[in-house]
């Protein structure tokens, strides 16, 4: 048998991905590898291997330790300027796109708090099930689509 993904790894990867995303959705915070291992009834080493495969699939972005989640888009594992609040949970988004991505993923209304990057004027945007209310604010992305994943933190 050649090397690579074992027969059961795809199932584990899906379980790990869902555990990560459900933890973010429920708490607004990144889960530890230990928490994910318990959730999927596995061990930390197997979870770390799954993280690596999910990184290769561009599902997760990891910290240098390989076991801490920096991004599970649209959720950020670290505080950012893009804050999303539902009635009960506060989230951090990776960027302006992801700030709208969180209510889209949750299927729930939310308040987005961010800022104009030039003037630093605060943005407060109510996002309903049908999207944000009328606004003349704009979104700008410096990096072309072809290079988004070269350096996702910068993008």
């Amino acid at each position: 048998m050649s090397g690579g993904i074992s027969p059961g790894s795809a199932d584990l990867d899906l379980e790990v991905k869902l555990a990560v995303y459900r933890h973010f959705a429920a708490t607004g915070k990144r889960p530890s590898a230990d928490q994910v291992a318990r959730e999927v009834s596995s061990d930390i080493s197997s979870v770390a291997e799954a993280y690596g495969r999910l990184r290769a699939q561009r599902v997760l972005l990891l910290e240098p330790d390989g076991r801490s989640i920096r991004m599970a888009p649209p959720f950020s594992g670290v505080p950012t300027q893009h804050v999303v609040e539902t009635g009960t949970v506060t989230y951090f988004a990776n960027c302006a796109w992801d700030a709208l991505g969180i209510p889209a993923a949750l299927g729930a209304p939310a308040t987005v708090r961010s800022r104009c990057e030039q003037s630093l004027e605060p943005l407060r945007l109510e996002v309903g099930l049908g999207g944000p209310g009328r606004s003349d604010w704009v979104f700008h992305c410096l990096v072309p689509a072809a290079r988004w994943w070269e350096d996702l933190v910068f993008t």
């Binding site: 995303y21 709208l100 889209a104 944000p132 979104f139 700008h140």
Partner: peptide, 22 residues
């Protein structure tokens, strides 16, 4: 300066990328 995106367009991007993410 790159192409500007309205918040209405951005909501479309958010839905396309993330509506089924969970």
């Amino acid at each position: 300066v790159r192409p500007l995106v309205t918040l209405e367009q951005l909501w479309g991007l958010a839905l396309a990328w993330y509506a089924t993410r969970l």
